[in-house]
Design a protein around this nucleic acid. Structure first.
Length: 568
RNA sequence: GGGCGCGUAGCUCAGUUGGACCAGAGCAUCGGCCUUCUAAGCCGACGGUCGCAGGUUCGAAUCCUGCCGCGCCCGCCA
C-alpha cells in the first residue's frame, strides 16, 4: 500500500493541533529532589531535580493535576552528623547554645555560603568518626536521640541547620527554574506518629509479622516470597528492629501510605518559601496556617529516586500490596534514573585523582562523606561565567542587567539540556568540557535556533509585516518546497513527541525532538531567505512558518524548563 | 546465588514500548562557507562485523535462547 500526505491538510492540522487528554484519574504527586538538608546540593541532585521537574511539566502539559513534593529528612543521621560537627569540632565543646550562636553568626555573614561550609563540615566529621570510633559511638546516637525527642537545644541546633540548608537548596533550584509545592518534613512525620498509625494498619492487615526465631528474631518483618537472598533463601525484610525502632523502608511505606491518603491523619502546613512569581512552597508544621492548601491524597505517586533504590521501592510497593492497597500499589511509580559520576578527567581536574589514568578509564563516584563531587552552585557559577563572557563579546552594547539575564537563561539552557539529553538508564560521566559546551547537541543550540526565528519575526514586524497568526489555505502551493514542508512537518510533530515522551516516561525523547527540530530549522534558515523573498504570498507563508516553528521550539524548551532568551 | 541495567563510529550517546528511518547524532579530525534574516550556525569528508554464537521471520541493533564483559542492588545503614 502507498500512503500520500495531503500537505495542505497536514499544515492546517499542525496549526491547530488537538489538545492532549489527561489520562490519570486525579491528582498526581511527584516527589523529587529529596536532598538531605545538611550540605550543598551537587550535580547528582541536579539530575534528580531536572528530571523530576521536567516530568512535572510534561504531566501538566497533558492537563494533569500535579503536586510537587520535596521530602526533608531533617531528623536523620546526615543532619545529626553536621549538628555534631558544630557541637564538637568547631569549638563549641558540646554546648548547643554556643553552637547555635555560631551557626547564627555564619548565617548572618553574607560572605559565607552556609551550605558549602556544611559540605566541608560533613566531610570533616565523617573523617573524624573514621579515626575516632569512640566519638562516633558517643556523639551520633546522642545527637540523633536529642533531635528525635525534640524540644531541646540540640534539636533546635539541628532545626536551624536543616532549615537554613533547605532554603539554600530552594535557592539553588530556583536558579534552574525548579519550584516545589510542599516540603514534607520527617520531624512532623515523627510528631504526628505517622509510623504508629501505619504500623497499626500493617499489623491489622497481616502485612507484617513478628519473627520469633532465626537471625531476625524479635523483628517485625515483611515476607517477600518472590525475592531471593544471596543464599537463595526466601527473603524477609525487616520493618521494625528488635529494639523497636523503624527501618528506612518502614518509614517509606508509611510516607507512601500518607501520600495516597491511606492514613487517617493530617499535617499542619506553614509557608516556607515564596518565589518571585508569588508561588509558595509550604512545609509541614504542627498547626496549619490560615489559607493552607490541602496536600496529599494523590491518586498517582511518582517517586524520582536513583536506580540504586529500585529494590527498596519494590519493597514499598509490596508493602502497599500486603495492606490490600492494590489500587495504590499499581499507581506507585519509581521514576528511576542512573547516577551521575565524574569523568576521569574531571576527577583529576578537581584533585580527587592523581591523574585521569588512575581511575583505569572508569568514571569516578562522588561521595558526600569524602566531600567529593561537583557542587550545583559551583557548576552554575562556572556556566554563567562562560555565558557572561560570550554575551559580553556578542552584545557589548546591551545594558549589563540585560546581559545578565541572557547569560543566566543560556546557562540554565545548557545545564538542563545536558542533564536531559541522556536517557534515564544511562549513567552520566560528568565532564566540565561537555557541560560547558554550547555547540552541537546542547541547550544553547536549540535556544539559538529559536532566537533566530524570533529575530526574523521581529524584523518583519518592524518593517510593517507581522506574521499571520493562522494558517491560510491559500499558501498550499508553497508546500511544494521540500525544505519548507519538511520543517513544517517536523514542527507539527511536537504533540506526538510530547505524547511519546510521556508514554515512555522519558524526557530525553523530548530533548531529542527539540534538537532535531532546531537542526531542521537551522538548515532551513541557511538556505531559505525569508525577508528577501520577492513573492509576497510566499513571504507571508514563510513568515507564518517561521513564527510557527518558533512557538513549537519555545514550547518544547519550556517543557524542559528552558527559556528562549531575547538575543544570543 | 538471585534481581535490575548496560555493551552501537576514536570519544559521548540516540535508536530497542510486537521488526521497515534502510545503521544515526554530537564531539574529535580534515576541507569548504560570514558585504545577504545573528558563524553559539551551515555544507562536505573520514569513521561502525550494532559484545559473541545460535534461533524465529519475507525482514533483527530491536524479539527468543545460550555465552562473554561492565555497573548497580539483594543490611536490625539511610
Amino acid at each position: 500500500m502507498n500512503f500520500f500526505a495531503d500537505r495542505a491538510a497536514a499544515a492546517a492540522l499542525a496549526a491547530a493541533p488537538a489538545a492532549l487528554q489527561p489520562l490519570l484519574e486525579a491528582k498526581a504527586i511527584v516527589e523529587h529532589t529529596n536532598i538531605n538538608p545538611n550540605k550543598a546540593a551537587h550535580i547528582g541532585h541536579l539530575r534528580n531535580a531536572v528530571l523530576g521537574d521536567t516530568w512535572v511539566r510534561l504531566l501538566r502539559r497533558r492537563g494533569e493535576t500535579v503536586e510537587v513534593q520535596n521530602l526533608q529528612d531533617n531528623t536523620g543521621v546526615q543532619v545529626a552528623d553536621v549538628a555534631a560537627a558544630f557541637l564538637y569540632l568547631n569549638g563549641a565543646a558540646g554546648d548547643a547554645a554556643a553552637a547555635i550562636a555560631q551557626v547564627e553568626t555564619v548565617l548572618a555573614d553574607p560572605a559565607v555560603r552556609f551550605d558549602y561550609l556544611c559540605w566541608d563540615l560533613y566531610a570533616a566529621i565523617a573523617q573524624h568518626y573514621e579515626q575516632h570510633p569512640d566519638d562516633l559511638a558517643a556523639w551520633r546516637p546522642a545527637t540523633l536521640q536529642a533531635i528525635e525527642a525534640g524540644a531541646n537545644p540540640i534539636a533546635t541546633l539541628a532545626a536551624v541547620i536543616s532549615t537554613a540548608i533547605a532554603r539554600c537548596h530552594l535557592r539553588t533550584m530556583q536558579r534552574i527554574d525548579v519550584e516545589y509545592d510542599l516540603l514534607p518534613r520527617e520531624s512532623e512525620i515523627l510528631h504526628l506518629d505517622l509510623w504508629r498509625h501505619a504500623f497499626a494498619l500493617l499489623r491489622q492487615r497481616g502485612a507484617i509479622r513478628l519473627e520469633s526465631a532465626g537471625k531476625n528474631a524479635g523483628c517485625w518483618v515483611m515476607d517477600r516470597a518472590e525475592a531471593r537472598g544471596p543464599e537463595g533463601e526466601e527473603e524477609t525484610k525487616v520493618i521494625v528492629r528488635s529494639n523497636g525502632t523503624v527501618t528506612y523502608v518502614g518509614k517509606d511505606i508509611a510516607y507512601q501510605m500518607w501520600k495516597f491518603g491511606l492514613l487517617p491523619l493530617e499535617f499542619g502546613y506553614a509557608r516556607f518559601y515564596e518565589y518571585p512569581s508569588g508561588h509558595v512552597a509550604w512545609t509541614t508544621a504542627d498547626r496549619s496556617a490560615p489559607g493552607a492548601p490541602a496536600f496529599g491524597r494523590g491518586v498517582w505517586v511518582f517517586n524520582v529516586i536513583d536506580v540504586r533504590q529500585s529494590y527498596l521501592q519494590e519493597v514499598v510497593v509490596a508493602g502497599l500490596r500486603a495492606l490490600g492497597a492494590e489500587h495504590e500499589a499499581a499507581r506507585s511509580v519509581h521514576f528511576s534514573y542512573e547516577m551521575v559520576a565524574l569523568s576521569p578527567a574531571c576527577a583529576a581536574e578537581l584533585g580527587y585523582l592523581a591523574s585521569a589514568e588512575a581511575s583505569g578509564g572508569k568514571r569516578v563516584d562522588v561521595s558526600g562523606r569524602k566531600g567529593t563531587g561537583v557542587k550545583a552552585d559551583d557548576l552554575l557559577d562556572r556556566l554563567e561565567a562562560r555565558t557572561r563572557e560570550e554575551v559580553a563579546a556578542r552584545h557589548p552594547d546591551r545594558p549589563a542587567a540585560e546581559r545578565e539575564r541572557l547569560a543566566a537563561a543560556i546557562a540554565v539552557g545548557a545545564l538542563r539540556y545536558f542533564l536531559l539529553k541522556f536517557s534515564r538508564t544511562t549513567p552520566i560521566a560528568f565532564d566540565f568540557k561537555e557541560a560547558l559546551s554550547f555547540e552541537g547537541e546542547t541547550g544553547p543550540y536549540v535556544q539559538y535556533a529559536a532566537v533566530r526565528a524570533t529575530a526574523i519575526g521581529r524584523k518583519a514586524a518592524d518593517a510593517g509585516q507581522p506574521a499571520a497568526a493562522a494558517w491560510d489555505a491559500a499558501w498550499s502551493g508553497s508546500l511544494d518546497d521540500t525544505a519548507a514542508w519538511t520543517l513544517l512537518w517536523h514542527a507539527g510533530r511536537l504533540e506526538a513527541a510530547v505524547a511519546q515522551s510521556l508514554d515512555a516516561a522519558e524526557p530525553a525523547q523530548l530533548a531529542k525532538f527539540a534538537f532535531q527540530l532546531a537542526q531542521t530549522f537551522n538548515n532551513f534558515y541557511h538556505h531559505t531567505p525569508v525577508l528577501q523573498e520577492e513573492n509576497p504570498d510566499r513571504r507571508t507563508f514563510l513568515l507564518w512558518l517561521v513564527a510557527y516553528v518558533q512557538r513549537q521550539l519555545a514550547e518544547a524548551l519550556a517543557l524542559m524548563g528552558i527559556a528562549v532568551p531575547e538575543a544570543m
